[in-house]
Amino acid sequence: MSQPRRRWFISVVLVLAIIAFVGFSMIPLISTAFRASQPVSETSVTNQGQKQLEEAARGYEVVLQREPENQTALRGLVEARIQLLDLKGTVDPLEKLVALNPAETQYGLLLAEVKQRLGDREGEAAAYRSILNANPGNLQALEGLANVQLREQRPMEAVALLQNTLSNAPEANQNQPGSVDINGVRLLLAQVYATQQNYNEAIAIYDELISNNKQDFRPVLAKAMALQQQGKNEEAKPLFDNAAGLAPAQYKERINQLATPSPTPSPLAPDITPSPSPPPSP
Rank of each mutant, 00 (worst) to 15 (best):
L150K: 11
V13E: 15
A236Y: 05
T46Q: 11
A80R: 01
A247W: 01
A169R: 15
I19S: 12
L110E: 08
Q191S: 13
L162D: 02
E67V: 11
V185F: 00
M225W: 07
P155W: 03
P270W: 05
L166W: 11
N213W: 04
A169K: 14
Q163I: 05
N135M: 13
I205Y: 07
Q174M: 08
M26N: 15
Q106A: 11
V13A: 14
K223Q: 13
M26A: 15
L187I: 00
L188E: 01
E152D: 15
R66T: 12
S275V: 02
P219A: 02
N168T: 11
T260A: 15
Q215E: 11
P177H: 05
A73G: 03
N173P: 08
V22A: 09
A243C: 01
F34N: 11
P177E: 02
S266I: 13
L111P: 12
I131L: 03
I203D: 14
S262M: 08
A125D: 06
A17W: 10
A259M: 08
Y206N: 05
L16A: 09
A158R: 06
P170I: 15
E79K: 04
M156I: 01
P270I: 00
A190Y: 03
G119H: 12
P267F: 13
V180Y: 09
L268T: 04
A146P: 09
I82R: 12
Q257D: 11
Y60A: 04
E152G: 12
L132Q: 04
V148N: 11
I18Q: 12
P155V: 02
A222E: 07
Q71I: 10
Q250N: 06
V192N: 03
Y60C: 05
F21S: 12
L53H: 07
Q65C: 01
A249E: 10
F240A: 00
N198R: 08
P261G: 03
E201Q: 12
A158V: 09
G184R: 03
S211C: 06
S44G: 10
S179D: 09
S277D: 07
I182N: 14
P274H: 00
M26G: 14
G123Y: 07
N212Y: 06
Y251A: 01
L87R: 05
T264G: 03
P278S: 03
G184H: 05
Q38A: 14
